[in-house]
Nucleic acid binder design. Structure first.
Length: 275
DNA sequence: AGTGTATCCTGCAGGC
DNA sequence: TGCCTGCAGGATACAC
């Protein structure tokens, strides 16, 4: 579920709330969301202060004191972060709590994840730097240019949609926004990456940025589970042009949107507008 | 290097 | 109402 815009929206909602909180207690209800032994996880977090909230790719990054370590949260398909006991409204009780962080004075944070495909881990500064380096460029950063995208695409013949989902190539793009970006670029999602021409790479670069910015502007896309820090759904789902619209008319030309499956996942496109 | 497949897990919608 | 199938925003591992 949560792709870059959803993680960004969540991080923005947590930023005014969490910093300054001291992790006094960590309860692991489902250890399968941890990438490390529960004992070490709890020990690494004990007594540490959350100093900031950021995002990298689809991850929410809770920055920690004592050496710039981070608590890295990947939301998977159904993950949520629910602040508890802060003013600004109780966002409803978590239905599938996996980890509970207690800050004292009745406050805390719950990592809630129905399917538990998400994961949570603590990394020290060195490991975090190394991990971040293994992830591709942030598509909304100034440094990410269409020429780089075009050059990188030439190195692969995997289908464009799959290429976009690979976090080592570009950060934060998931199945919804990948399909939407392909539509805006007028390129079929199953076209080999290296067959994307220069002008198309420009359009794709622009399309990726547009769909991600739209996602952020409208508070994320909620198909079912996504909620921001206040427990509210996003509004971007109304702006999707192809994703989930199989058989419905293309908003540009009226041709029925097609769904095909490859790489084990659905892809949606307009056979008329996308070549 | 690429693809297809399977895995982790739960819930929901639709067909009968 | 119940049972079954298929599907879901992610990430990874495997055989070929």
């Amino acid at each position: 579920m949560p792709e870059l815009p959803e993680a960004e929206t969540l991080a923005r909602g947590l930023r005014p709330v969490l910093p300054g909180s001291v992790i006094r207690r960590t309860r692991v209800l489902h250890d399968d969301v941890l990438r490390m032994p529960a004992r070490r996880f709890r020990r690494d977090l004990a007594g540490r202060t959350i100093t900031g909230v950021g995002r990298r790719a689809k991850n929410v990054v809770l920055e920690l004191d004592r050496g710039e370590g981070v608590l890295l949260v990947n939301l998977g398909m159904t993950g949520r972060l629910v602040p508890m006991g802060f003013e600004g409204g109780p966002p409803g009780r978590p239905t599938h709590p996996a980890i509970r962080f207690g800050f004292g004075e009745g406050r805390g944070l719950v990592f809630d994840d129905t399917r538990r495909f998400g994961c949570v881990e603590v990394l020290d500064a060195r490991d975090w730097e190394e991990r971040s380096r293994s992830i591709g460029p942030e598509p909304l950063s100034d440094g990410w240019r269409w020429s780089r995208l075009h050059a990188d695409l030439q190195a692969s013949r995997t289908p464009l949609r799959n290429w976009l989902l690979d976090q080592r190539r570009v950060a934060g793009v998931g199945n919804i926004y990948a399909n939407e970006a392909c539509f805006r670029a007028g390129v079929r999602p199953d076209r080999p990456a290296r067959a994307v021409e220069e002008a198309e790479a420009r359009a794709l670069h622009r399309g990726i940025r547009e769909v991600l910015r739209s996602g952020i502007r409208y508070g994320g896309t909620t198909l079912r589970d996504y909620r921001n820090a206040r427990g509210e759904p996003g509004r971007n789902q109304r702006r999707l042009r192809v994703y989930g619209r199989e058989g419905e008319p293309c908003l540009r030309c009226g041709t029925p949107i097609q769904r095909i499956v490859f790489g084990n996942r659905s892809a949606f496109f307009c056979p008329e507008c996308q070549r």
